[in-house]
């Protein structure tokens, strides 16, 4: 399963997922604590520096940013037209978030999905005292990744059935066979896991 990761040989890519995630969290808190314009400037400069250091193609990064920036610009435009006053503060706030989204996008483009999933699994282990079972969460994440292509194909079949009938009056009826199929599939998969000796009471401590 391919993610949005974009491979380059750079120091930013080699940083651990935990370091990048922690850094993003810290940068977000610092930028939000600073006054709007200053925060936007700080996050923007940091983002540009990382963009250069990560050797990523600028066009590709901008493409990832296009949707949120267009949306923010439209919302800002409406507000500036309607309200008139206070647009400078709004502009600073919007730019600040656009810069933070740039930082987050850079993290996603430079970190492999597998490394992020590993990071989540380490975080689940830390949450064990709260009743989180890291072994089960890890298994569910792996199962979900495995099921996505299968379910994407199934949904595509529902859509094709819908198109073949023209404008379908009862879309709900089309989803029913899919849902029944998923629930039956769950029975088979449960039996398969049990047959291979999967023990749901194992909390993953002694593996």
């Amino acid at each position: 399963m391919l993610g949005l990761y974009l491979h380059r040989d750079s120091a930013v890519h080699r940083l651990g997922a935990g370091v990048k995630m922690g850094g993003l969290l810290a940068a977000t808190l610092v930028v939000l604590a600073l006054p709007g314009a200053l925060g936007a400037l700080a996050a923007g400069l940091l983002g540009l520096g990382l963009l250069v250091a990560a050797k990523l193609p600028v066009g590709r990064v901008l493409r990832e940013l296009r949707a949120p920036v267009v949306m923010l610009t439209l919302l800002f435009g409406c507000q500036a037209l309607l309200a008139g006053t206070g647009w400078a503060e709004t502009l600073a706030a919007v730019t600040r978030f656009a810069a933070l989204i740039l930082l987050a996008t850079l993290m996603t483009l430079t970190t492999k999905v597998a490394d992020m999933v590993d990071l989540f699994e380490r975080l689940f282990s830390a949450l064990r005292p709260l009743g989180v079972n890291p072994a089960k969460m890890a298994l569910m994440l792996a199962l979900t990744i495995r099921f996505i292509p299968l379910l994407a194909e199934q949904v595509r079949e529902v859509r094709m059935a819908q198109q073949a009938r023209g404008v379908e009056r009862n879309i709900a009826a089309l989803f029913v066979p899919l849902l029944v199929k998923i629930l039956r599939l769950a029975d088979d998969l449960t039996a398969a896991l049990d047959a291979r000796g999967y023990d749901p009471t194992d909390d993953g401590r002694h593996t």
Partner: peptide, 21 residues
């Protein structure tokens, strides 16, 4: 239970599949 894990994973994948349509 094992079934709970499988059902949650299947529906997570369903939501992803719905987004790809």
């Amino acid at each position: 239970s094992t079934r709970d894990l499988v059902l949650s994973a299947l529906f997570a994948a369903l939501v992803a599949g719905l987004g790809m349509a």
